[in-house]
Nucleic acid binder design. Structure first.
Lengths: 202, 202
DNA sequence: TTGTTTTATTGAACACTGTTCTATAAATTT
DNA sequence: AAATTTATAGAACAGTGTTCAATAAAACAA
């Protein structure tokens, strides 16, 4: 089975190779403006060959989608050592926002563009559900320590996610140019800190 | 100049007629999946003729974009009679969320899809800036009455917009199916009320 | 080493897209 | 009645995602 193994490895390498080309183009031009021919050209392949490795364009995109989540979750992982759940919760929001700022294109692919998410739901957004229950776990911990006692756990979790996503979504669409004299970074950071201040008063 | 006037009116009617067909298709299928041929077919016209009335596809879309804003602003207008700025602010959020819920497709066209916004910026997002300064005005009023005194006006306004938009954006992408046992409506409403509760404690 | 079967790869083809342009018909003006 | 403007249609262009038959290369069987 040595040859079969090598074959499989080669196929995986080609898989990665396509993904590398696709990532570059996708992050450069976004989903809609990236064509299969663009990707093929990037790695000097024929367009048809891509379909030997991927079902369709959305499957390629979806791999990158998952990649983005892995990246984000890795950055959140360093917060595991933060003992106090409220501190951890606050820091999670900061890390999330920082991720969106530093990886605007990934964030777009992960949370804004929705073309291919619909079809590939089954295993597709499981990782998103994990993220939600991760947040919900932190909120519960906080509540066990006396914070946000009078809040419904689910609604409150949904609110927190909404706040953070709202900040990032506005940033990604650069709809926030209307705030004069403040940079995007300042708005996101201080906007979030305003929310933290509200939480702390609660 | 009577004939010229009639001509102009006829042209405006055709303009509207195209817009009506386009609105139907756009709201049915979204921006990307709507083609000029779809729109032309809807009103039994040739694709090329659309370009006699509109520069391109994005211009048609942009008219509907503005239409959505007019709709939303009309619904917000009824809140003018609410005297207390904090009550008005809270109600504005509710109206906004209700608008997104009842007009998911418009909301998508207005705040999520970004294809044509880039090019048509000049007069294009002025209406968005107005909305922001409207919000900021309310926040200022609240502050003059002693509410949120220790908050920076701009950041706090940005936060509020982020909260509301975040809730609506999650709803529009139905990314919130991961919350078991709660409907979208419940999540949006009670998620927002959780935020209101935070504001009231402040 | 042959012949046979998998495995990859290509490039043409299909049906679509937004947009442009020419030809033409209709309406208006001269 | 002739000339001119206005409006419409439909073909054409370059692009899209995707499919498919032909083919080359590699692996396996004899």
């Amino acid at each position: 089975m040595s040859i079969a193994e090598r074959k499989q490895e080669e196929k995986q390498e080609m898989h990665k190779h396509i993904l590398n080309g696709a990532r570059k183009i996708f992050l450069e031009k976004g989903y809609e403006k990236t064509s299969m021919r663009n990707i093929a050209q990037e790695i000097n392949y024929s367009p048809g060959s891509l379909y030997f490795y991927f079902r369709d364009k959305s499957e390629i995109f979806h791999e990158l989608h998952k990649e983005g989540f892995r990246l984000l979750l890795n950055q959140l992982k360093v917060l595991e050592k933060v003992g106090d759940p409220f501190e951890r919760l606050k820091a999670s929001g900061r890390v999330f926002i920082q991720f969106a700022r530093e990886n605007k294109d990934y964030y777009n692919l992960m949370f804004i563009v929705d073309e291919p998410v619909k079809e590939s739901l089954p295993e597709g957004f499981q990782i998103g559900e994990e993220a939600i229950s991760y947040m919900q776990g932190m909120v519960k911990e906080c509540q066990q320590k006396g914070k946000f006692k009078d809040m419904d756990t689910e609604y409150f979790t949904f609110l927190i996610i909404s706040v953070v996503h709202g900040i990032c979504a506005l940033f990604c669409k650069h709809r926030n140019t209307s705030f004069t004299g403040k940079t995007d970074d300042e708005l996101m950071e201080n906007g979030y800190e305003a929310f933290v201040a509200l939480l702390e008063k609660s």
